[in-house]
Amino acid sequence: MYDSPALENTVDTKDIKISANNVQVFYGETHAIKDVNVAIEDKTVTAFIGPSGCGKSTFLRCLNRMNDTIDICRVEGQILLDQEDIYDPRVDPVQLRAKVGMVFQKPNPFPKSIYDNVAYGPRIHGLAKNKADLDDIVERALRRGAIWNEVKDRLHAPGTGLSGGQQQRLCIARAVATEPEVLLMDEPCSALDPIATGQVEELIDELRTSYSVVIVTHSMQQAARVSQKTAFFHLGNLVEFGETSQIFTNPVDARTESYITGRIG
């Protein structure tokens, strides 16, 4: 049924990177996320699946406090990153976002050169000691983003001139350049063609060796291909969370089964 179910993906017990306890999210009067508990492991790809409007993107944006930029949004409950509450008043959301990077649905390179796009994060966080160091960081990030070979000769061309797939990989490289510990991806392939999608998926699998990756996706095939853990959201509830292989072959909840077999969605 799926291209390559992740049955053979090795699953070891790993450290918990992020743990969410009883998280509630409200948009004004709307109760968007209801009582979500989830533990996201380090060096693992965790996929959030579910029908449109089920709250998976909203929950993802809680993990780096991107919801703070929306006035009417209110988050309750506890989200721990390395055992520290990220909603603690002492935590600077700006610092947090440097640790928890994010890649968005639509590629959004800044209207700057490719080099400046990638150097943006390292520059504002002061990660480079000098120009050579910065060049180094940019090259490493672009290599990690699997786009170095395509852009190495035109680093000073505008990032917006790249194709959609290249732009998205540039955005991933940009996120990687700040050396985050967790990488959040909000439907990173929804605007891409199948070839670019394949490249990004390959990249995600590679990033797993150094980061904890959380990916929201509409494509169940994609979730099965790239993730080790899968969480199924429905109407703001976390219905089921477990090994990807188990969710896709032997779901516990009837709703999960209906969704992955295409009856609700």
Binding site: N64, M66, T69, V94, Q95, L96, R97, A98, K99, G101, M102, V103, F104, K106, N108, P109, F110, P111, K112, Y120, G121, I124, H125, C171, R174, A175, T178
Partner: peptide, 26 residues
């Protein structure tokens, strides 16, 4: 576009860094 701001905030930039380096140039 809001996506420019989101991209910048997502990289851990503050509001003023976002204004100076992304919004004003755009």
């Amino acid at each position: 576009p809001q996506s420019m701001r989101d991209g910048s905030y997502g990289l851990g930039a503050t509001k003023s860094e976002t204004v100076k380096q992304v919004i004003l140039p755009a």
